[in-house]
Design a protein around this nucleic acid. Sequence first.
DNA 1: ACGAATGTACGACTTTTCTCGTACAGGGCG
DNA 2: CGCCCTGTACGAGAAAAGTCGTACATTCGT
Lengths: 111, 111
Amino acid sequence: MTPAAGAETRPPLLPEPATDELRLETIMGALAEPLRMTVARELLVNSDDFDHPCGWFGFDRPKSSLTHHFKVLREAGVIHQRQYGLERRSRLRTEDLNARFPGLLELVAAS
Amino acid sequence: MTPAAGAETRPPLLPEPATDELRLETIMGALAEPLRMTVARELLVNSDDFDHPCGWFGFDRPKSSLTHHFKVLREAGVIHQRQYGLERRSRLRTEDLNARFPGLLELVAAS
DNA sequence: ACGAATGTACGACTTTTCTCGTACAGGGCG
DNA sequence: CGCCCTGTACGAGAAAAGTCGTACATTCGT
């Protein structure tokens, strides 16, 4: 089926762990790296309900390094990623994280 | 001065970061390791206000490995350690952690 | 169709972390 | 004193994580 006219047709999610597969140790390992913690905090604090390409964060690092860190965050279950045209945009898994680990995001925001 | 009779004379704390030096990234890095997460959770859940020697946890690992993991926890600020005779006993830094990162220990307990 | 832009894939190198054997320190007890 | 016990210190090897250059894939705009 083609999507109905007017339907929100966002690109599919890249592979990621299901909500019930999230493990606190893995998530903490992902957030233990300063750049990745910054990504999570930026997405949380500036949570304007948009997905952001990784250039949006303004990190002065080689692209291949950024690819690596965003992949770690996605595979740990901290962010969703979707391919929008040539951009791969990231969004915090706010609802999943709040459901499984209530208080975690408040911690990230406050740090 | 010698301590007054009846005073609680516990051995001094081993070197550890001050409360205001605690960093969330470092603590998460420490708790990202399953054995270390278990130590924190055991100390939290069985919080009987006693300090526990590392043999108390019953890990089947070489002693030098355990020394390493307890040191990582102490240097991250997750636990205090004191030397009681020939035992080095550990205690969760509950108050410090609750003060700096409210919600963190609830997260550890719930996981 | 061409070039510019975003970002991946791969691989090599470096750095950090983990693991654990061995040797040793120091207290408690016979 | 001699022995056991808890645990450290040191160091070497293995494994994991981080870093980043280069080449490539895809898409958008002209």
